[in-house]
């Protein structure tokens, strides 16, 4: 019951956060030079035609009138029409979200699956070759630009070896997507019992997921190593050792549980960043997700699309933190909610 109240309180807290984000985004998009209308109108359009298009789009109104109109529409679930796609922004976001989510979800899954064992082993075997190797991998993962990793992977596994498909998006060219249930092709193809599509979708995911996984893994592994070292050097672990508890139990039940709290917070931050921030990965792999949509929207001063995207990204970010806070509250009995 107390947990439910806590979740509701946190969800209510989302409202002022979103309002603040909407207001800031609105101001920023209006302050930055650039106007979508000239581009949409094209070189042949007369000044009068451009003014008329601006008037129709409401861009000639004072900013506070535009903001109020936007808020009113937003409350009715209307984020406006994208200047670039001519579709409702809500439709655009809904269409692209599953692609980004699928990519980031598997990328983060891979990152966590690699980072936690590496960080733990590295902490337990400090100063050994495996520790050095983990640290080198972590440093490389942090310092190598993500587009560089993507290009190396494409060059190696697509161009040279031919083992994996190239940057063709979520499915091979000419293959139809499975009937939509969740929008995640791997899941939907399994629901439809279409294993060919499942295999194809999985193969398409491998390289971009590896790219995200390798990049996201680095900070998580470093954090896991650092917090595990702290935990393993703490008094309660020394006590546990002196009581003769086996190492496996000490590591998994005592040290890891305590060191996971900052790691979980970091995972939430990395996930929140990745869901909207993997512009380069989506761009290079021709992935029809939110990253590329937001990039095009920003470059084209597509105000409704930029605003819609930021609202979604803020909501995802806050939700990721909420989930982590709940997990931490469950993990750490000292926390009251």
């Amino acid at each position: 019951m107390r947990l439910a109240r806590y979740i509701i309180r946190r969800l209510l807290f989302l409202i002022p956060v979103l309002l603040g984000a909407i207001f800031l985004t609105f101001l920023l998009t209006r302050m930055v030079p650039g106007n979508p209308i000239e581009r949409v109108a094209g070189p042949y359009a007369s000044d009068e035609a451009v003014e008329e298009m601006k008037r129709q789009a409401g861009l000639l109104d004072p900013w506070y009138v535009q903001f109020w109109n936007y808020l009113k529409d937003l409350l009715q679930g209307d984020m406006g029409i994208s200047f670039q796609t001519n579709q409702a922004v809500t439709t655009d976001l809904r269409d692209r979200f599953p692609a980004s989510f699928e990519l980031v979800f598997f990328g983060m899954l891979l990152a966590v699956a690699l980072a936690l064992p590496l960080g733990i082993i590295s902490a337990m075997k400090q100063g050994t070759w495996i520790d050095h190797l983990t640290r080198i991998i972590a440093v490389l993962g942090v310092s190598m630009p993500i587009f560089w990793i993507a290009l190396i992977l494409i060059s190696t596994f697509y161009n040279r070896l031919g083992w994996l498909p190239g940057p063709q998006g979520r499915l091979p060219i000419a293959m139809s997507p499975p009937p939509e249930v969740t929008g995640l092709y791997t899941v939907d193809s399994l629901i439809a019992g279409d294993f060919d599509t499942f295999r194809a979708a999985t193969r398409q995911l491998v390289l971009p997921v590896l790219t995200i996984g390798l990049t996201a893994m680095a900070p998580i592994a470093r954090m896991t190593r650092a917090t595990m070292i702290d935990a393993l050097n703490s008094d309660y672990i020394r006590t546990a050792r002196s009581l003769g508890l086996p190492t496996r139990v000490i590591v998994t039940r005592n040290a890891l549980k305590n060191s996971l709290i900052p790691v979980l917070t970091l995972i939430a931050a990395v996930f929140g960043y990745a869901i909207g921030g993997e512009v380069l990965v989506e761009y290079i792999f021709t992935w029809p997700g939110l990253g590329k949509y937001s990039f095009d929207a920003i470059m084209g001063s597509d105000f409704p699309a930029v605003q819609g995207f930021i609202i979604l990204a803020v909501a995802m970010y806050v939700l990721a933190y909420l989930i982590v806070d709940i997990l931490i509250a469950i993990l750490d009995p000292r926390i009251e909610y």
């Binding site: 290009l151 494409i154 697509y158 161009n159 031919g162 190239g166 940057p167 063709q168 998006g169 060219i173 761009y283 290079i284 792999f285 021709t286 029809p288 590329k292």
Partner: peptide
Amino acid sequence: KIVSDATQRVQLLRNGD
């Protein structure tokens, strides 16, 4: 096929995709 990155368009062409 919409491929925004020119380098990837070249790769796909060279690989016969």
